[in-house]
Measured scan of single mutants.
Amino acid sequence: MAAGGDHGSPDSYRSPLASRYASPEMCFVFSDRYKFRTWRQLWLWLAEAEQTLGLPITDEQIQEMKSNLENIDFKMAAEEEKRLRHDVMAHVHTFGHCCPKAAGIIHLGATSCYVGDNTDLIILRNALDLLLPKLARVISRLADFAKERASLPTLGFTHFQPAQLTTVGKRCCLWIQDLCMDLQNLKRVRDDLRFRGVKGTTGTQASFLQLFEGDDHKVEQLDKMVTEKAGFKRAFIITGQTYTRKVDIEVLSVLASLGASVHKICTDIRLLANLKEMEEPFEKQQIGSSAMPYKRNPMRSERCCSLARHLMTLVMDPLQTASVQWFERTLDDSANRRICLAEAFLTADTILNTLQNISEGLVVYPKVIERRIRQELPFMATENIIMAMVKAGGSRQDCHEKIRVLSQQAASVVKQEGGDNDLIERIQVDAYFSPIHSQLDHLLDPSSFTGRASQQVQRFLEEEVYPLLKPYESVMKVKAELCL
């Protein structure tokens, strides 16, 4: 049975990233139509530049190519590739079939990587351009969430054990800070992308030097003109047959890092959902379990974690691919890159769409948070109580021993009897502590235990987050809708 299948058929496997999760716009960027249309555009740009620099290419040939950029006979191309065992030459023939007058000058002087690699770089750039505003929107939604809850005390956790208090907004800023680093890295790697350009079979530009009869300047002009037509500021000066596969490492490393950030955020949300302090959106008709109707599973956060793990592992592909590119190139890269580049971007696209949807509907339960604080705060307040007693004339050592005994009794009630923490009640009825009984409410005010959390939130948002989001103001209103 021949390899390949009808990918629109229910009898043929289709990647869930495309069929179930990723956005239509990201799927289109990695589609065959987008790819092969870009090949034709690159052939047109090459012909236009070659004509401008004096090669015998007519206006009629150029116009014929322009008129057929979208006229792609995919069936013919597939048949040609089956016959020739070469995808680029299959599309040269297919393009030439609908451009008979231009057929002889299509791909003039070029090698397969002229269309293959340059198209990949265009796709990487455009895919990054799709991700950047999506990530900015996630940051914006979380920034709104953090600002609104900047002063809401909550129990902090280290080692997932109760620690000092923080605020809900401050905790959210930990998430935002990681995503801001990801946004900066995505922008950097996007701006650092260079075009492969017009380089020939081993990167020496020998074929173009021959076409222009040894004119170095025209060869350099050709490279520059096509690079500018493709919208790049610069091209690699040095290439082998391909652009260095280190570029793929750079791009997928940034995406993998984004995956790590999203995994951490969504894990926190899942843990908070278990504590009943916070939940992701839950639709009115949504079913959490087929057997347990009360369940409210954090399905979206779980999906993000599941896909983020996949995204983090994909960076190993370009690392290994770059390491086995012998001399000017081997074909070890080809099949692998067809999979890992598309999957990385479709996965990143999915987790950003999902995280935006989550961040637009996060639900906080202040009463649950308050109750958990009441359970733990008495123990945390013991040092403040000791200091207040010393100020009232008591002995630190005597007070410490009193607190120690009462704390152990209260802990026994919590752990052995399943009761509430009654340390404060014990202190309130103990005559030894009568000098500070009137101060206990103040000493137990949760806001006095959150330090500068709310001020940190305000400063972080104003100095770091809002300036970073400013270039994306025009796209901030787009909502994230999930079908599944």
Rank of each mutant, 00 (worst) to 15 (best):
M316K: 09
L155M: 05
R296I: 00
E48T: 12
L193V: 03
A90K: 13
R196L: 08
R245V: 08
R459L: 11
G96K: 05
G231T: 04
D144T: 14
A102G: 05
R374G: 09
E50P: 12
C399D: 03
G96Y: 02
C98A: 03
V457A: 05
Q356D: 09
V363F: 13
V315C: 11
R149K: 05
L341Q: 09
E462R: 05
K479E: 12
F74R: 05
D332N: 02
K199S: 07
L121T: 11
F449M: 12
E25S: 15
L17D: 12
S261M: 02
S289N: 09
L341V: 09
E64G: 08
T58P: 06
S290L: 06
N68H: 02
K147H: 06
F195I: 09
D349I: 04
A103T: 07
L469P: 10
A22F: 06
L155Q: 02
N185V: 04
V168E: 07
I358T: 08
L444D: 14
S474F: 13
I369R: 09
F327C: 06
T166S: 00
E417A: 08
S253T: 13
A2K: 05
R426K: 10
F345Q: 05
T167S: 00
S474L: 01
T119Q: 02
K147N: 00
Q205D: 07
Q241K: 05
D268T: 13
H400M: 01
T382I: 06
P16C: 00
A291W: 14
A411D: 12
H310C: 11
I339C: 06
L258H: 15
N118G: 01
V413M: 10
G200K: 01
D422R: 02
T58S: 09
K402G: 05
S434I: 15
I139V: 03
D248G: 13
T166Y: 11
L314S: 06
A308M: 12
E328D: 09
D441G: 10
Y21M: 10
Q325H: 10
N118T: 05
I237C: 14
K35L: 06
L108I: 10
Q164T: 01
E148V: 10
S448R: 08
L44S: 13
N336Y: 01
M292V: 13
D333L: 11
K224V: 05
T202D: 08
R404F: 11
Y466T: 05
Y472N: 06
L179C: 11
D192V: 00
A273D: 15
T119W: 01
L128K: 03
S257H: 01
V465W: 11
E70K: 15
M76S: 06
M292F: 14
F379N: 00
D398I: 09
V465N: 12
P162W: 15
T154F: 01
R296G: 12
E328W: 06
A127T: 07
E148H: 07
D59M: 03
A77K: 05
R33Q: 11
A291M: 15
L255M: 06
V198Y: 15
S334K: 09
V315T: 09
N353W: 05
K479C: 00
Q409E: 11
L44P: 03
S23D: 15
F95M: 12
M278I: 13
M387W: 03
S31H: 06
V92D: 02
T201R: 04
N357K: 04
A308S: 12
E279R: 01
F195E: 09
V363T: 05
K367Q: 14
R309E: 05
P153R: 01
S261L: 09
W175Y: 00
D191C: 09
E50L: 01
M380C: 12
G104V: 06
I72N: 09
G116A: 05
L255W: 12
E283V: 04
N274M: 00
S359A: 02
G169P: 03
G418I: 08
E425T: 13
Q221L: 02
S31D: 09
L155R: 03
G419T: 15
G393P: 09
A77L: 12
Q375V: 01
L84F: 05
D248L: 14
R196F: 01
Q61G: 14
A206W: 14
S112K: 07
